[in-house]
């Protein structure tokens, strides 16, 4: 490699390294804004913004889903296995919404300390398996999610 090419390699390396460091610092600075959601523990610890909308994420607590008579309003509790928060939502739930599964809701806290959601998104896990496997896993450990009907 002659001197000219070596100079070019060094120049490219400096540019890539510089951009990498700048991006890493920028991402660190914006860390909070890049978080897609807050957990119930973080909300109860006062880390979530008050007075404006934010996202709350966690698992839908088993046995907590209650549907109102109008067929659209749903009440449930979101847990991170430490703390839980009451959530009210009026609208259509996504296919993957079920008890024991992950959920991300957008909304704000009301005066009673409950979370009033304007949007509910289902967060699904990275596991893919046939229903029979899920069934046999369920018999092995009781806290696996309920298989689809």
């Amino acid at each position: 490699m002659n001197a000219k090419r070596r100079r070019r390699v060094v120049a490219v390396a400096i540019v890539v390294l510089g951009v990498g460091i700048a991006t890493a610092l920028a991402l660190r600075a914006f860390q909070e804004n890049l978080l897609f959601f807050f957990s119930p523990s973080e909300v109860l610890a006062g880390k979530a913004p008050s007075g404006r909308e934010f996202r709350l994420g966690g698992l839908v607590e088993r046995g907590s889903v209650v549907r109102e008579a109008d067929g659209l309003t749903v009440r449930f509790r979101v847990t991170d296995l430490g703390q839980t928060l009451n959530v009210h939502y009026r609208g259509i739930l996504p296919d993957l919404f079920r008890e024991g599964q992950g959920v991300v809701t957008r909304g704000r806290l009301n005066d009673a300390g409950a979370f009033v959601a304007s949007e509910v998104l289902a967060k699904h896990d990275e596991n893919y398996m046939p229903p029979e496997v899920a069934g046999s896993l369920k018999t092995a450990q009781s806290n696996t999610p309920r298989p689809a009907p």
């Binding site: 993957l96 398996m129 229903p131």
Partner: peptide, 11 residues
């Protein structure tokens, strides 16, 4: 391939 235990055929 079998359907998924959560997503059915959508996966």
């Amino acid at each position: 391939a079998p359907p998924d235990y959560q997503q059915g055929d959508s996966y």
